[in-house]
Design a protein around this nucleic acid. Structure first.
Length: 440
RNA sequence: GCGGGUGUAGCAUAGUGGUAAUGCACCAGCCUUCCAAGCUGGCAAGGAGGGUUCGAUUCCCUUCACCCGCUCCA
């Protein structure tokens, strides 16, 4: 990452090149909501595909789920969200601090400065509320899920029975979650509608710490190997103080331009969630351990990733500027903006560029072949140098250039985004050449 | 939610109480055979609402959004 990267620069690039837009922009936007444009969408889908491949498809012991955003409100009562999210808060008008009323010794005195000049206690409920059915009264209140993991817990037995999985095994889900964040901030880092990729691994309590460490290692390796993050960009933050449900927890953090921020949490949640759902639903959430002839409440190890935070981290990691020679009149050093996005998640993986419009037909034939396997683009507009720069700015790792030699010997040049070098490859060998570089 | 700042074409900037300018980008044409060429033409803007004024993008108020610092982050 370019160490001088300002968020403004990235936000502007994301808008200009169609990665990320403000939601409802023509109406002035809406706080905490962002849209992905064409390239952002392609990249987001690739990120989700990569995670799904990594966590589900290449493992025999993790199953997939796609649950609804709206659940029976009792789910959120059991999970603790409705109570925890209902905290009363008060602001001190003197020292501008905010406090939870239930944690104050004297609710009329500011614990920070001793002032009695406090605002009326207000409820801060972070769950988004809606109404199910045409009648909007309190009997029909429902909530948009604040995390994707709770429906995984409630569907534990359905998934287990359908797939004949035995513990230990996991259930994974990718989907939207919603929180009425008090203060959305830092572009897409903290927004009110966001996507999560979560995996809940159900295991026996005595093996749980082993699995916790296993998943911790797996997940850290993923960031280095698959997303190409570097050691100075990542750190592990072990939690000193644990949430009410957790027995061990860590954050995998990325060094954003605005500071360190959490990408993923790995949590040992104990039996808290499953016990609560058993208690609130009255249904047994126990697992019958045939080998030891016992019933146990499964212990849960969770890996929880923010998709949007991953997107932002990849973009920050990828953003770079270098200087290149230019033949543009009146300018000396040319600054090249380039996104060094890992090839497997790049929105466009290969661009096919005919050197001249006369070569369009041949180039289109090659394009038709490779677009079936990779995210590809075809561009004949402008000079070849300009087209390379366009592709650099959206992070396309390879450009295939069809030139006049192609018509003679059926070879093309493959130009690398990072090295800016060219390699001559037979058109017949392109698929083999790219499979090695672009597939997961 | 508090304090501070900002808001002009897709992006970056300029300027003005009286016709909103420039660069980049984009589109069309000419030209052009490997790293942002050139020429010609074109598209396109003062966040929203109210007030003051003959007239507001400019001054005032409200609101919305974004940025920075606090706060929050189960």
């Amino acid at each position: 990452m370019n160490s001088k990267l300002e968020m403004d620069t990235l936000v502007s690039l994301c808008k200009r090149r169609g990665f990320i837009f403000q939601s409802s922009e023509i109406y002035g936007g809406i706080n905490g909501f962002w849209n992905y444009g064409p390239y952002g969408t392609a990249m987001k889908r690739a990120v989700e595909k990569l995670w799904w491949n990594e966590m589900v498809e290449t493992r025999g012991n993790v199953e997939g789920l796609d649950s609804t955003v709206i659940c029976n409100p009792k789910v959120w009562k059991a999970s603790g969200h409705l109570d925890k999210f209902g905290d009363l808060m008060t602001d001190c008008k003197e020292c501008k601090t905010r406090h939870r009323v239930d944690q104050m010794e004297d609710p009329s005195t500011c614990p920070n400065c001793g002032s009695k000049n406090l605002t009326e206690p207000r409820e801060f409920n972070l769950m988004m509320k809606t109404y199910v059915g045409p009648v909007s009264d309190e009997d029909h209140v429902a909530y948009l899920r604040a995390e994707t993991c709770q429906p995984i817990f409630t569907d534990f037995h359905s998934v287990r029975i359908a797939t004949r999985q035995k513990m230990p095994f996991g259930i994974a889900q990718i989907g939207k979650a919603f929180r009425n964040e008090i203060n959305p901030r830092n572009f897409i880092f903290r927004s009110r509608e966001f996507s999560q990729m979560e995996m809940e691994f159900f295991c026996f309590d005595e093996e749980a710490m082993e699995w916790y460490n296993f998943w911790k290692d797996q997940r850290i390796k993923y960031y280095y190997d698959k997303l190409e993050f570097t050691e100075d960009e990542l750190r592990i933050h072990d939690h000193d103080t644990l949430a009410h449900y957790a027995k061990a927890a860590l954050d995998i953090e990325f060094k954003f331009p605005f500071g360190w921020g959490e990408l993923e949490g790995v949590h040992h949640r104990g039996t808290w969630d499953m016990s609560r759902h058993q208690e609130y639903s009255g249904e047994s959430m126990e697992y019958f351990d045939q080998e030891n002839n016992r019933k146990v409440i499964p212990t849960v190890i969770e890996t929880s990733v923010g998709v949007d935070r991953t997107m932002l981290a990849i973009l920050c990691h990828a953003y770079d500027e270098d200087t290149a020679e230019t033949k543009k009149e009146g300018k000396k050093a040319d600054v090249r903006t380039v996104l060094r996005i890992p090839a497997i998640v790049a929105p466009v993986q290969a661009a096919v560029l005919p050197l001249s419009k006369k070569l369009s037909e041949k180039a289109e034939n090659i394009f038709k072949d490779i677009r079936r396997r990779y995210r590809s683009e075809f561009d004949v507009t402008g000079s070849i140098g300009k087209r390379y720069r366009r592709q650099d700015e959206i992070g396309t790792p390879y450009c295939v250039t069809v030139d006049f030699d192609t018509m003679e010997d059926n070879t093309v040049t493959v130009r690398s985004r990072d090295a800016m070098t060219q390699e001559r490859v037979s058109a017949d060998q392109l698929i083999a050449y790219f499979d090695d570089k672009l597939l997961m």
